[in-house]
Amino acid sequence: MFENFTLAHIPTLFVATATTFGGLMPFFNAEAAIEELGLPKCIAASKDAQSAMILSSARVTALGACMFPFYFTGKFSQVDTFMVIMGAYVGAVDAYVCWKEGVPGKAVFRRASGAAIAAWGCFGMTGGA
């Protein structure tokens, strides 16, 4: 299962694990998950926002879970593609919403993290390019 493992796979496995299992948090405590994302308490306390967070997190969990079969079957270029899309798009949306909601520090962190994830995939680091 791990015969092709290298240290370069650690960031990819971290992202896959964090999105798969971290995305489950809203099912158990949506308010805390919204706060962890970085949004203000007034949004986190909203039952409407909590329902939307659960729906959104299910989709992110599915993306993270899709990375594992590709990884374990050695399809590293496909895994890198997930990294690019999730890092660039999801990171940008997270940053935009945090910025718009008045948490610029969290917005910068989200954008920088997303850019690093996207760069990892863009340069084919999981595949060893």
Rank of each mutant, 00 (worst) to 15 (best):
L63Q: 11
V60K: 00
G105P: 06
C66N: 02
F14A: 13
G102D: 12
G114E: 00
T12I: 04
R59G: 13
T73C: 12
A32N: 12
L24N: 03
N4P: 00
M83Y: 09
G105D: 11
A129F: 10
G22N: 07
L63H: 08
D80A: 07
A32C: 06
A107D: 09
L24V: 12
P69W: 01
F109N: 03
A32D: 14
P69A: 09
S113M: 14
F109L: 06
G127M: 00
W120C: 08
S51I: 05
T126R: 00
E101D: 07
F68L: 01
P11S: 06
A92Q: 10
V79I: 15
L37V: 15
V93F: 14
F68G: 03
A95I: 08
A33K: 03
S57R: 06
T61I: 12
I34Y: 03
C98K: 13
H9Q: 13
C98N: 12
G23Q: 01
A16S: 13
Q78A: 12
Y71R: 10
R110Y: 10
T126M: 00
L13N: 06
T6P: 02
K75M: 08
F2C: 14
P69E: 11
G64V: 04
F28C: 14
L7E: 08
G124V: 10
S77N: 13
A44I: 10
K41Q: 09
P40D: 03
S56H: 14
G124E: 01
T126N: 11
A65S: 08
A88T: 07
F123V: 04
T126E: 04
T20H: 07
A45R: 14
D48V: 11
P40Y: 09
M83C: 04
C98E: 08
M1V: 06
A16F: 09
A49P: 03
G74Q: 13
Y96T: 10
I85D: 09
G74W: 09
G105C: 04
V93K: 04
V60L: 13
I54S: 01
T126P: 03
S46P: 01
S113V: 08
T12P: 06
F2W: 15
G64N: 04
F2G: 15
L24S: 07
F5K: 05
A119N: 00
F76W: 07
C42R: 11
A92S: 15
G23W: 04
I117H: 01
A8Y: 03
A52Y: 13
E101N: 03
V15E: 13
M86C: 02
C66E: 11
L63K: 02
S46T: 04
I54G: 03
V93Q: 10
R110P: 00
F82S: 03
I117W: 00
T81I: 11
V108P: 01
G102W: 05
G91F: 01
T81L: 13
A88I: 02
F68V: 01
W99T: 00
A88S: 12
I10C: 02
N4E: 14
V60Q: 03
V93G: 10
S77H: 14
V84G: 05
G127V: 06
P104G: 05
T6G: 05
T6R: 12
Q50A: 10
I10L: 14
G91P: 04
G121L: 06
G121Y: 09
A44R: 11
A8M: 09
